[in-house]
Write a protein that binds this DNA or RNA. Sequence first.
DNA 1: GCCCAGGTGAAGC
DNA 2: GCTTCACATGGG
Length: 308
Amino acid sequence: MTSAEPTPPESVAAFPIRDYDLEATLTSGQAFRWQRLDRGWEGVIGARWLRVSATADTLCVQTAEPVSDWQWLIDYFQLHVELDRVLATFPDDPPMRAAVAACRGLRLLRQDPWECLASFLCSSSKQIVQIRQIIALLCERYGEALVVPPGHTPVSAFPTAARLAACTEDELWECKLGFRARNLSFAAQMVADGRIDLERLRRLDCAAARHQLFRLCGVGRKISDCVLLFAYGFQEAFPIDVWVRRALHQLYFPRRHLTARPLEKFTLTHFGPHAGYAQQYLFHYMRTKRGGRTAPPSAGAAPDRLRT
DNA sequence: GCCCAGGTGAAGC
DNA sequence: GCTTCACATGGG
């Protein structure tokens, strides 16, 4: 090619990175469709199949079709975020130091609001491996087929709200959703017919956006916080699930019983302006550290209660 | 077989 | 305000 021609779109690209742990990021329960494949990861962002891999200083990306503008990828992986600045805002206490030491390089992704919302509607009281199964079925059955490399097994996009709204509740039930089928069905209808506008939430503040998400059946504090954090990037959102609750009890309040309210209050003030980021470190740390699964939240809780 | 999972909403106290 | 329970299902 001559230099006079405009730069042709490419299907491979490399981006400089630093402090980016792709494995921790893609396995930390934010996104549920990434598959490890030999040295890289395969997944779907929007309507694009892609393969990514990382070295210490480079993120390598391959798509099935040429790409002229990579902004969608930069947004999704949040490549512009300087992790140092985020980590510097974390409280300097033993639990956070341990969590950062264990999974430094873990990042928050920026996902599509509908995919994120629908995914976490499937998540309640399910293990991550099961959530992945549910979502795989939804995509396989109701997602739009995507262009993949020659010879590659077919891959589909995450199903649109309109497509899931057109499903019967039984059809969703068949995707192993159980009692979550009704909530997903209602949410899909609300989004598809415009009763809730997920794009508009971007312009609201965190509390107002949360208030809107609460209008959906099956969306409470935890699921709304996941969407606010993983899709909209509200850094103050702090999802408290069984693992994070366990982390808070074990690491910050051993031998004390804190109820949900004071625990939430603690998280609102203690973890700083990037509390949601800190939460993700605690979550992944608890799930991956040796013995993390032992000692459930209430085990060994002393009778002395913190006055509320 | 048993326990538990990135929960929520309702009921009872 | 807090605790308990039903809601389905399957992984380990």
